Computed example of a mutant assay.
Amino acid sequence: MKKTHVKKGDQVKVIAGKAKGKTGTVLSVDAAKGKVVVEGARVMVKSTRKSEKNPDGGLIESDGPVHISNVKKLG
């Protein structure tokens, strides 16, 4: 496994890409793929059909991954 400069729970700032300037907490780290999920930095919207689990269907928002080189640890 590769060593990373951030870990789960760290406060980070996105320094490059579409989410540049946003700050948040690291929710998960995938060192093998070089990705981190930052809370509120890259919100992805997915459309879902009606089902037993989700009777109304509609849009579901979730946090998407950001490349680990595009984040800087704060503090």
Rank of each mutant, 00 (worst) to 15 (best):
K53V: 14
V45I: 12
G17K: 00
S28R: 04
T25L: 00
S28K: 09
R49M: 06
P55L: 10
L27I: 12
S47E: 13
T23M: 08
H67L: 15
G17R: 00
D10V: 02
G40F: 06
P55A: 08
M1H: 13
S62N: 14
T23G: 09
I68P: 01
K53F: 14
H67Q: 15
G58M: 08
V29P: 06
K18F: 11
D63P: 12
K72T: 10
V12Y: 08
K53I: 15
L74K: 10
K35R: 14
A19P: 10
A41C: 01
K2G: 10
A31E: 12
I68C: 02
K50M: 04
S69A: 11
V38R: 06
T48K: 15
N70F: 13
S62C: 09
S62L: 07
K46F: 09
A32W: 05
A41R: 05
S51P: 01
G57W: 01
K53W: 15
K46A: 05
S62E: 08
K2D: 11
T48W: 14
V12C: 00
I15C: 03
N70M: 15
K18M: 15
L59G: 02
L74G: 13
K2A: 11
Q11F: 03
S51K: 12
D56T: 10
V26C: 05
V71M: 02
K2N: 14
A16N: 02
D63R: 08
T4L: 08
L59N: 09
M44D: 11
P65S: 01
H5R: 06
A41D: 05
K7V: 09
G57R: 06
Q11C: 04
G34D: 02
G40N: 15
N54S: 07
K22P: 12
D10H: 05
